[in-house]
């Protein structure tokens, strides 16, 4: 009896180093940042926020950020969902190649990857050369420094984080469930809607949470692919701190972005809890 109690007591202590570290180095600084944005310790006011939200330019920036994140997540989902199935269906050497294609790009480094995309998307770059050469386009299309180019590059960076969570759920799905549904008279569309989709939903939610939060906060990809024309919250933060030396503005925007990220985390946890009925 005593031994059991000791073991139980000891367990939560194990988390103390890790959680303590994160608390001190991550949670506390963020909380302080929040306080600074309220102009603490001099006063406690929301004036910085009032200022921020009064400026329509900032709403424009917020909309850019959210829009880019939505588009990136949407395309990642559209392409990543079938790709996850292709990965699950592949065997042997094909599957190994597939996995290499997913993981190897992580080693290139986001800077070089984004830069490689600038080379590809340039007006005289490979993509335009191919499109014009194949006769799809009459003349080269402007992709660099456009939103389309940004989404192109962002999806390229983040799609593995959509594919892998969905794949891990697809892999666990019992194929007999699809067979059972078929034998009961369900058409392929009905099977997809009522069996496959609900069962893969946890993976989809995880993938969306990852990609949306990461693309909301992305900095390097927009910097290299769209530059000044397309201002996002991250770029605004960096600009405030590194160039404008306006720490007040920087911390305000930072908190706005933080709130968005927290909202994504909380809602994805809530959704995940609701769909947990499907093991």
């Amino acid at each position: 009896m005593t031994a059991q109690r000791t073991t139980r007591d000891r367990t939560w202590l194990l988390a103390v180093p890790g959680v303590g570290f994160l608390f001190a180095a991550y949670a506390v600084p963020l909380a302080l940042l929040l306080l600074v944005s309220f102009k603490f310790p001099e006063t406690f006011t929301l004036s910085a926020y009032q200022h921020f939200f009064a400026d329509s330019y900032n709403w424009h920036v917020i909309w850019n950020t959210v829009r880019a994140a939505l588009l990136t997540t949407g395309f990642c989902l559209l392409l990543g969902y079938p790709a996850a199935f292709a990965l699950a269906w592949s065997r042997g050497a094909v599957q190994i190649l597939f996995l290499i294609c997913l993981i190897l790009p992580l080693s290139v480094g986001i800077v070089v990857k984004a830069f490689a995309w600038t080379i590809v998307l340039r007006t005289d770059g490979v993509l335009n050369q191919a499109l014009v050469g194949l006769g799809i386009l009459g003349q080269p299309m402007r992709l660099i420094f456009t939103e389309a180019g940004l989404i192109f590059g962002a999806v390229n960076v983040f799609i593995p984080f959509m594919i892998l969570p969905i794949y891990s759920v697809v892999r666990l799905m019992d194929s007999r469930l699809v067979e059972a549904a078929q034998t009961m008279g369900a058409t392929p569309l009905y099977v997809f809607r009522r069996v496959v989709l609900p069962l893969t939903l946890p993976g989809v939610i995880a993938g969306i949470a990852f990609v949306f939060s990461m693309s909301l906060a992305m900095y390097v990809v927009p910097t290299l692919l769209v530059g000044e024309r397309y201002m996002t919250l991250s770029r605004q933060i960096a600009r405030s701190y590194l160039y404008l030396r306006d720490e007040q503005l920087g911390s305000t925007v930072a908190v706005v972005l933080l709130v968005f990220s927290l909202a994504v985390i909380v809602s994805s946890q809530w959704l995940a809890g609701r769909t947990r009925g499907a093991p």
């Binding site: 890790g18 994160l22 180095a25 909301l216 906060a217 933060i237 930072a254 994504v264």
Partner: peptide
């Protein structure tokens, strides 16, 4: 462990993945 808030703890430790790195960096620097 059998203590309350286990799930919350797990979420907390994984959360930096989904936080804007820029913000975390600034906060830490300051």
């Amino acid at each position: 462990g059998r203590f309350p808030g286990r799930d919350a703890l797990s979420t907390f430790v994984v959360s930096p993945l989904m936080m804007p790195g820029l913000v975390v960096g600034i906060a830490l620097l300051q």
